[in-house]
């Protein structure tokens, strides 16, 4: 079986801030979950700049929610996510009061 290469990239964009670009889908969800979880173990606040994030499928969304839920004492903030990401976040019901991820402009 061919190795699956994630279609997203993450790089440092400042203190506790990381830029995410590309696509977080089923093929990259496990790697994304690991990366975000690692950041949350290191910082009380993790900001993900999402201007370059094209889309995130259900598996990618779930990876983010699971990572945040595993670190309830930390804050995970998605900044600059496009309208599509915000829309399906709401469609999946993750925007409610129990939501573990915050959105910011």
């Amino acid at each position: 079986m061919r190795p699956v290469v994630p279609d997203f990239r993450m790089f440092s964009a400042g203190t506790d801030c990381w830029s995410v670009s590309g696509v977080v889908d089923t093929d990259g969800a496990a790697a994304f979950r690991t990366a975000v979880g690692e950041l949350l173990t290191r910082s009380a606040l993790v900001r993900l700049r999402c201007e370059g994030l094209e889309l995130m499928d259900v598996a990618g969304t779930r990876a983010l929610v699971d990572a945040a839920a595993a670190h309830r004492d930390r804050r995970l903030v998605l900044e600059g996510a496009n309208a599509t990401v915000r829309r399906y976040w709401a469609l999946l019901g993750y925007d409610g009061p129990r939501g573990a991820v915050e959105f910011a402009p």
Partner: peptide, 11 residues
């Protein structure tokens, strides 16, 4: 957004 939504659905 219409194209992105189709891409998500296709994915």
């Amino acid at each position: 957004s219409r194209l992105r939504e189709l891409l998500i659905a296709a994915t």
